[in-house]
């Protein structure tokens, strides 16, 4: 079975995010004064094959910890769904 893992990596709340701050300031200068905070992050879509959803989950978590995330500054979360059948061709 193929699973699609949607992974979101963001900077930890305690870490300053200069990109997010810049975007927030841009919002404010455009008149969106109600924007309190902007945090930027990374989105990754990983397709993996696994015997079960649990197995995929385990793999995804391991990949996040080992490669995709630097735990010093970043946190992550992900969603897993089974991939829809590919169209034949």
């Amino acid at each position: 079975m193929n699973f699609v893992v949607d992974i979101v990596v963001t900077l930890k709340p305690s870490v300053l995010d200069p990109q997010g701050t810049t975007v927030k300031e841009a919002f404010h200068s455009m008149g969106y004064s109600k924007v309190d905070d902007v945090r930027m992050g990374k989105y990754m879509e990983v397709t993996i094959s696994a015997g079960s959803k649990e197995e995929a989950q385990g793999k995804a978590d391991e990949m996040c910890r080992k490669v995709l995330v630097n735990p010093v500054i970043e946190t992550y979360s992900f969603d897993i769904k089974e991939q829809e059948k590919q169209e034949v061709n």
Binding site: L11, L16, P18, Q19, T22, N70, V72, I73
Partner: peptide, 17 residues
């Protein structure tokens, strides 16, 4: 060296971006 854990801490983008 930071990423491989030989030194502590991490690098962020320059604050000027």
């Amino acid at each position: 060296l930071l990423e491989s854990g030989l030194l502590p801490g991490a690098m962020l983008r320059n604050r000027s971006l």
